[in-house]
Design a protein around this nucleic acid. Structure first.
Lengths: 195, 195
DNA sequence: GTCTATATGCTGATAGAC
DNA sequence: GTCTATCAGCATATAGAC
């Protein structure tokens, strides 16, 4: 039954977060005003403060939810027995996730510097946890002799940077299908780690 | 002979640009005020407008000068006859340049969205010119059979993203020397292109 | 060349009516 | 739950004194 009052808590809350995500991703946190976000949602600026104590918390909640969702999705997706299999799963998962949630991903590495120190540390911990998942795969592959690489940490950072880069240029519906793209990146990743 | 007037045009102009570069890199263009820049230089906000028509132009000039300097430095540094040699020179040059001018490089891919459309197009053209230098090396190596790669454009973007990533984590004076770092990245790059 | 003073407008956030 | 009205402060940029 649709309610007849002016109450829209279940709608407005998520709408505010969606609008903030989209606007922050497009223009940057510092360049977006609370009035703009409210305008996108269809309410006045004051109404936003029923859903967030302040603008900083709005950003932080977006980043924290993203990181937690990413870690949960990876926990569900991770599979494979050999390091090579597990690396391939990681590469394909990472690309899929980044293309499906490009705004969240983009935000989460563009707006880190606009977090307060405490909030930044909190996000950094989550991000490091995700990096460690890849690092563990590489370390296992180095031990088992499946991979040939000079430095596990450097390879981890290089792989993540390479994969993140997809966001800066790939557009769905263009020359390359997503599956084809993943295949190309998986080949490059394999070459990077000497598999 | 030192002049005795209050005129400091030769000092203040560059100082403004240096302060803007540093502050924009640390906090982001939108979050930095003209007053902050002036404060860093030791003048009042109004004095900045003797050196730049507005804040937008100040940002644009920093990015344009960076890109032009990068292209000039690469023109001086590029060498090697075989594609493999030329790729190694590129990898080492790119890392050196990025570590030597990390603020400029960081700015030039964090603040693109704060440029006006016309200014953005201008910077994009320069950036694409640089990318094309790497892309030409890969295309030559593919033709000659020195490289094995599925897609020249994808490999170009992947290599650049991987190399840019150095900025996000490498700190001079740490566990790895710069030369060691370059060697590791060169090995990974070689693996990526099947050389 | 730099200063002070100022214009005009937008900012994040709050108080109280409905 | 949302609105209107408002606060105090800071933004970019300019004008005119020195």
């Amino acid at each position: 039954m649709a309610r007849k009052t002016g109450s829209h808590a279940e709608i407005t809350g998520p709408a505010i977060r969606a609008a903030a995500l989209s606007l922050f991703a497009r223009s940057g946190y510092a360049a977006v005003s609370m009035r703009e976000i409210a305008g996108e949602v269809g309410v006045r600026a004051g109404a936003l403060y029923l859903y967030t104590p302040d603008k900083q918390t709005l950003l932080f909640d977006l980043l924290r939810d993203h990181m937690e969702h990413l870690l949960g999705a990876w926990a569900d997706a991770k599979s494979g027995t050999t390091p090579v299999e597990r690396l391939e799963v990681f590469v394909r998962f990472h690309i899929d996730y980044h293309l499906d949630r490009s705004d969240q991903v983009f935000l989460s590495y563009m707006e880190l510097r606009n977090l307060t120190d405490a909030n930044f540390q909190s996000i950094e911990t989550l991000r490091r946890t995700y990096e460690d998942e890849l690092q563990a795969i590489l370390a296992d592959g180095l031990d088992s002799g499946d991979f040939t690489l000079a430095d596990v940490r450097v390879s981890t950072m290089a792989l993540i940077a390479m994969l993140n880069g997809v966001l800066t240029w790939y557009r769905e519906g263009g020359r390359l299908s997503r599956d084809h793209l993943q295949g190309i990146y998986w080949n490059m990743a394999r070459g990077m780690v000497g598999a």
